[in-house]
Design a protein around this nucleic acid. Structure first.
Lengths: 341, 341
DNA sequence: CTGTTAGCGCTTTCAT
DNA sequence: ATGAAAGCGCTAACAG
């Protein structure tokens, strides 16, 4: 059925060992004439190496595992794409595993990934990730001795690699943008407070207020959970108060804000300015296009793969933390109100 | 490092063969007491079977490969999720491979998948898929003897499984909906004409016109390519003509229509009604929510996995074609104009 | 310059 | 009721 190096060896009149040497371009002194003959018959027979055999022998799968909460979330989709592309560029593969934020499912996948001998695993902080079960999962990976990179896991420091962005700065940028447009009463829809990323963004916002000499109003802060619905509900809860702008800590919640505001007949940006975070695909096509904080998530995925591949190839690899810059994308959902009556 | 059955055998004082028998629940008469002891030590040592070894021996990877144009497209995302969930339910895994509609990349992935001994492959028709290179890829999979299911590949009949939906009916449903709302001048933004699915939808639309005794106006048909931009451009091209509704052959193009219409100060659905196709996530949160034809794409993904797993487990498996029902989701982007002045 | 050999971890038939 | 042994396809150390 499947053609093996034995078949090639027989067809080319050499031994399997020679075939292996040639096909892997090992530095050995095989006659040029023999080389050609072997390569040619391999090509003719349509040979593909059996990676299970290679793996069993070398203990290297050239495969990475990626644990993501949800592939359908554009944010994670971009990250996954970045990893996949970087893998492909180096001849590696990636296993995508969707955990749905379920620690048991995540654990199961980690075991599968271990069984499949992946050479590295990427994990992501999610709204419920700080639970003990999730932390146990991190330790499981470490105990298997599999290189791992933590994406956006600001709070959990273990001897492992990390790929992060500066949430404090992101919060600061968004708030400052709104303030520079004359907004002083700003509603904030945050992520779960136990998430460090969300907490840092709030700190960034407060700093922006402080720098501008503005008063911080805690009653305009609503704790969301990064879902569309929580953005929608947030407005219902805040609507009785006065505010001219809202900063939602991710785009998904901003979409909820859009529709909730529409229900109250409030126009964006005429009545209320809105800022999001992440820059999902939808944010540029929605009406009005959403001003948002862009995270180079695709690049973070690429870097994750590169770190993991490096770690796999260099057993003496030292844990590394890469931080990425944020960028404010100004679109049509925010407006200068300084010249209003 | 990694614990093997040998380790368990040593610890439990039995032979590796016995361990294998017990851990795989093979029907053999191992003493209950021994069974327990083996299972317990396996648990204690944290044993995970080495799937490379299992694969090498059994020639079964319990893994499926999925060739998709783009994981970031929600349509494919749902499909991938369906496959992944069905795999997980049966203890299988899935490899996601993003081809970007590049036949060379697809080919490369097929070879990788073959090298990794996947037990089945799913492929999807895409806007450029009918090219000779893509068709060669199908044949490559077949030549490897790997079970395959073609998703939405209405035009290419080979001895292979398929998972499809009735495009003719989908086109008919959308057009009839608009007609029932009093629209007689409807613009159509189709997919590439070489795609059978798109062609069938047009036929369905024509049939709806015919059934309603309406005249078909070819100048209101614009050939798009299923991208956001092509929906946007379509309106630029059609705007000089009179129409009260547009049916875009996918949601992405409908989003382009939304923004292009906005540019001309045309309101949805007040001035123009819009219907899409696919029911992406964005369609329910966009303003106004988009009326669209829902394809049970998640279920199609599940079924794909089930067919593939079945085929892998039954070498005598006969090719099967599963057709799925469509559903019109009526939201706020379409409006009854019969009582207008 | 090329071939022989052992063995990676597991399954499975055949002996005991 | 359990164990010994062969072998899946490949690589790498060692022979020749």
């Amino acid at each position: 059925m499947k053609v093996t190096i034995k078949d090639i060896a027989a067809a080319a009149g050499v031994s399997p060992a020679t075939v292996s040497l040639v096909l892997n371009n090992r530095p050995s002194r095989i006659a040029e004439e023999t080389r050609e003959r072997i390569k040619k018959t391999a090509e003719e027979l349509g040979y593909t190496p059996n990676s299970a055999a290679v793996l069993l022998k070398t203990n290297r799968s050239y495969t990475l595992g990626l644990l993501i909460p949800d592939i359908r979330n554009d944010y994670y989709g971009k990250y996954a794409k970045g990893m996949e592309d970087a893998c492909q560029a180096k001849g590696w593969s990636a296993f995508f595993c969707t955990t749905n934020n379920n620690p048991l499912k995540e654990r199961q996948y980690i075991e599968t990934l271990h069984a499949k001998n992946v050479d590295g695993i990427s994990i992501i902080t999610t709204p419920s990730n700080q639970s003990a079960l999730f932390l146990e999962n991190r330790d499981l990976i470490l105990s298997y001795g599999i290189p791992m990179v933590q994406m956006d896991m600001t709070g959990y420091r273990k001897p492992a690699n990390a790929v992060i962005s500066d949430h404090f700065k992101g919060g600061y940028m968004a708030a400052r943008h709104l303030i520079s447009l004359g907004h002083t009463e700003i509603a904030f829809i945050t992520g779960p407070k136990f998430l460090e990323g969300s907490a840092s963004r709030i700190l960034g916002c407060k700093k922006a207020f402080e720098d501008a000499g503005l008063n911080w109003n805690p009653s305009l802060v609503f704790e969301g959970n990064y879902s569309y619905e929580s953005g929608y509900v947030a407005i219902d809860n805040l609507i009785s108060q006065k505010f001219t702008a809202v900063f939602a800590f991710n785009d998904l919640m901003a979409y909820g804000v859009y529709n909730s505001l529409d229900k109250y007949n409030l126009k964006i940006p005429d009545d209320i300015s809105v800022v999001g975070y992440d820059d999902n695909f939808t944010s540029s096509i929605i009406n009005p296009p959403l001003t948002t904080v862009y995270q180079p998530i695709y690049e973070m995925g690429q870097t994750t793969a590169e770190i993991l591949i490096h770690a796999a190839e260099h057993p003496d690899h030292e844990p590394v933390v890469k931080e990425f810059d944020l960028q404010l994308i100004v679109r049509k959902s925010t407006r200068d109100i300084r010249n209003d009556i």
